[in-house]
Design a protein around this nucleic acid. Structure first.
Length: 512
DNA sequence: AATTTGATTGTTGAG
DNA sequence: CTCAACAATCAAATT
């Protein structure tokens, strides 16, 4: 798949059906992406209906892949990861952002550069499309020239693009996500998925039934088979129904990362499809940097150890259970295993983490990990951004703004003269909240929570807002009182991550 | 092939 | 027949 994030950006322009009105991202996205012919153009369309229709049609399946495909660009030189955070963070990113002239087009927008999940924020528009309409004029002005060309050329294709939405996410979003992950991993785990809702409730008897049913389907060729037939005769084997009490295998580091990240991404971009999220996560993972990856790996290993223990206990319980069954089945059966091994999360909760105030994070980010993030402001992000040759260099392609627009409402109003100004200029009546950093700066970066240097402030408030906005979901995520450390730690980390993450890419883009 | 999440689809069983 | 509950599948990417 050559699908690129930004190509899908058009969706962002249009409000996706599920888009969170609160998300501010889109605006930034525009700024960032205004260069992106496609995306911008989408937004630019005067005809809102087309827009809407596009969104409505959005099914996640992109038929027009060609549009998305961007020839891979040679990856820009990546600075030493260890150095990146410094450079990117302080000089690179901001300088880039600020330096960018409002109109400045990014010469070559390479996917690599974009590599970031540009999860576009469809949020820009309220679902009804209000925001969009109001903003469009402004956007048009900004992107006017390109927009016209684009409309003439690409308008149609964009509409239906499934990936659109993906494109909305800006690279910044990635960094934001990462910061979120670190800060509020709890969100993911805690609230989001009504976990047990679906499969959580394992029905003991289900396994046998299902097998029967499946076999039945095969024989009878009923509906379920139909679905399979329709697409792939895929895994017919997946039927392994396991004992619910059986300890789950520790997931891979990437899976852990995915688990954490996806929530943040989804939170910011409700409309993002799994594919989009997956791509974003992948890019983020690439940009993550060895240390961070190692942190995950360590967790995985720890989880593995836990798993082995649990497994041993489980097996032991089975043995005892079987023996008990012979005697008295009922009591022994369900209870022991479950007691020994708590059904779901236990594996990942590490001793230290378990106690940690951040449940969600605890599962996958340990304080140590967090620290690692802090200490090393995601050199990886920035690095990866550049590194992947994913994005084809598109002449007009927008900066990879992977913007996960956090619901910024509250915070925006609080502080950011800039944002207010921008809003005015943009005449964002509908979305006063959206933080518009600067027209030139499309990329939103989450700034350090509290004190951010002037240069950084633009982003800082956004980031803080983002965090806050996100935070609500998981109380734990939002800085719990007890965790002053985190607060202190994270800011730096975020800063590094958020700001820096984009840098490499941007740099490469702009510099080249 | 396994995992990640969430949406969708389909089946089953109960009312 | 309807509805709730549950299971399976799928998406992209990584291990």
């Amino acid at each position: 798949m050559d699908v690129r994030f930004y190509p899908s950006a058009p969706t962002a322009v249009g409000s996706l059906p599920g888009a969170d009105p609160t998300c501010l991202g889109p605006l930034d996205y525009y700024h960032c992406n205004k260069f992106d012919g496609e995306n911008m153009y989408m937004g630019m369309n005067d005809n809102n209906q087309e827009f809407l229709s596009a969104n409505q049609t959005y099914n996640g399946q992109n038929e027009n892949n060609e549009d998305y495909e961007i020839p891979p660009i040679t990856p820009p030189n990546l600075p030493d990861p260890s150095l990146l955070h410094l450079v990117d963070h302080e000089t690179g990113y901001h300088s880039l952002c600020h330096s960018l002239p409002p109109n400045s087009l990014i010469p070559a927008y390479s996917y690599q550069n974009m590599d970031l999940p540009a999860i576009m924020v469809s949020n820009m528009l309220s679902q009804d499309g209000h925001l969009l309409s109001s903003q469009l004029p402004t956007i048009q002005e900004m992107v006017h020239s390109e927009a016209t060309s684009y409309e003439s050329n690409h308008q149609v294709p964009l509409i239906n693009r499934a990936g659109m939405y993906t494109g909305h996410m800006s690279a910044l979003s990635q960094s934001q996500l990462i910061s979120q992950m670190g800060l509020r991993s709890g969100v993911t785990h805690g609230s989001p998925s009504p976990p047990g809702s679906k499969s959580a409730t394992p029905s003991p008897s289900s396994s046998t039934q299902e097998e029967e049913t499946e076999s039945h389907y095969k024989v009878t060729g009923e509906k379920r088979p139909l679905t399979d037939l329709g697409k792939k005769p895929k895994n017919q084997k997946k039927k392994k129904k396991k004992d619910p009490n059986e300890p789950q295998k520790p997931v891979s580091a990437y899976a852990l990362f995915f688990r954490d990240t996806q929530a943040a991404i989804k939170g910011q971009n409700p409309n993002a499809t799994f594919g989009d999220v997956s791509k974003i996560v992948a890019s983020m993972w690439d940009s993550l940097g060895e240390e961070q990856k190692q942190a995950y790996k360590r967790k995985t290993e720890a989880a593995k150890k836990e798993y082995l223990k649990a497994l041993a206990a489980y097996r032991a319980s089975l043995v005892s259970k079987s023996s008990a069954d012979q005697g008295e089945t009922k009591s022994a059966q369900t209870n022991q295993p479950s007691k020994m091994i708590p059904p779901k999360q236990p594996l990942y909760t590490m001793p230290p983490q378990a106690s940690s105030p951040y449940p969600g994070l605890g599962s996958f980010l340990s304080p140590a990990d967090l620290q690692s993030y802090r200490g090393h402001p995601h050199p990886g992000l920035s690095r990866t951004l550049n590194s992947k040759p994913m994005l084809p260099s598109i002449s007009a392609s927008p900066p990879p703004s992977f913007q996960i627009s956090p619901p910024l409402h509250q915070q925006l109003s609080l502080h950011h003269p800039q944002s207010s100004i921008l809003n005015q200029s943009l005449s964002m009546q509908q979305v006063p909240q959206q933080p518009i950093l600067s027209p030139s700066m499309a990329l939103q970066v989450q700034p350090p929570m509290n004190s951010s240097p002037p240069g950084q402030q633009d982003f800082s408030h956004i980031s803080s807002e983002f965090q806050n906005s996100v935070g609500p979901r998981s109380p734990a995520a939002s800085n719990p009182p007890g965790n002053t450390e985190w607060d202190n730690e994270y800011p730096s980390r975020e800063c590094g991550i958020n700001h820096c993450s984009m840098l490499p890419r941007d740099k490469s883009l702009y510099l080249t």
